[in-house]
Design a protein around this nucleic acid. Structure first.
Lengths: 201, 201
DNA sequence: CTATTTACATACAACCGTGTTTGTATAAAC
DNA sequence: GTTTATACAAACACGGTTGTATGTAAATAG
């Protein structure tokens, strides 16, 4: 067969990853055979086994391909004069990305609903390092808000941060789980604003 | 082979369901063969196919076996003089059940982390009817709290209810996902109290 | 320009897992 | 006391999936 150049090979690699995402989303990771992925990518299993050792490695590659840029896109502005507004913006950005970027949304949906956390995926069940950083950033932002006297009295920044962390986790889950017509998806922005407003002094 | 009486047959049926829960939890639903379940239950696949049409039906039976009593156990006292305390009690009850009743905890862990929502499970991805009832009950409880002037001014009961709903969803996920030594599991009670306290006028 | 490596496609062997079918001893029905 | 239905066990047939091994044409190295 026509052998490809390095650039063309990299393109087929990305095609395989894209195909894997589509099939994972539709069939679930476990019920997806490499044959299905290969067919969806327009190649044979030979190509898949050339680029990836097995389905597990392909899954992790697909995950990195989309979630790594995701965590980088949600940032907290450190020298904001209103840290609460910064938190609100960061939270809204999460759901904007989910709404606007199919690749990220589909990957998160796969990780949340289309795979089983056993064996090699078991370590991913708990709080990922990216999520821990997010929680840490939240705590720092709330601490800055407290320093400026923006928070309700009687609450600690850490408690507010974990509460927001749980809120975000739950909202992402229901945002994705409900489908495009979900009321949670429709009202997400309003819910984020209400959540942050509840913290303001 | 020694044929069983109706009562003995029902016992083997429950044994199969228990075995399915154990194997599902360890291997994930997709990677669990009926042979594994049968072996764990001390029977053969013949017994499994006698009581259930296939793995899917067994999965739903296992799910009903544990989640139906779960939703009934979390109740909101309608004529409480402090509806916010009633909400707090109900939320705490959720995590008490998760902590104290392995069957319920394992089943929730399976549906949260050990199965893929495709095909026949796809409808379960969204908000279940039990969860909708929970959200409705939350809204009513917050409405009663508002009527007694217990809530912070400027927030609607519906907004508080959805916020609490997301909080609970996120906390359950992280409570389960972190394992027995999770800080979220350790601090769940405190987080619930802080969450409710934030709402009080 | 030759040799080697690359980037796959194709073919092969082995193993599960599933659903069904058949067998069978006993409980229950009459 | 037969008969029948029950509650399984055991055996069978089948397709699907995996990993690997082999083939191969072109790109790249030398």
């Amino acid at each position: 067969m026509v052998r490809k150049t390095k650039e063309e090979a990299e393109i087929t690699r990305l095609h395989i990853i894209d195909a894997a995402r589509r099939v994972f989303l539709q069939c679930g990771v476990s019920h997806t055979s490499l044959e299905k992925i290969a067919a969806a990518a327009g190649v044979t299993r030979g190509a898949v086994y050339w680029h990836f050792r097995n389905k597990s490695e392909l899954f992790f590659a697909m995950r990195e391909d989309a979630t790594l840029p995701f965590v980088d896109r949600v940032v907290f502005d450190a020298d904001d004069e209103d840290p609460l507004a910064g938190i609100e913006t960061a939270l809204l950005e999460i759901f904007r990305v989910l709404a606007d970027e199919p690749k990220t949304r589909e990957t998160i949906e796969i990780v949340a609903f289309k795979c089983e956390y056993v064996d090699e995926l078991l370590p991913l069940m708990g709080c990922s390092s990216g999520q821990e950083v997010f929680l840490s950033d939240l705590t720092q932002a709330y601490t800055r808000a407290a320093a400026r006297g923006l928070l309700r009295p009687g609450v600690t920044p850490a408690a507010l941060a974990t509460d927001t962390f749980m809120f975000v986790g739950g909202l992402i889950k229901h945002w994705l789980g409900g489908g495009p017509e979900s009321p949670f998806r429709r009202d997400a922005e309003q819910m984020v604003r209400a959540h942050v407003a509840l913290r303001r002094a």
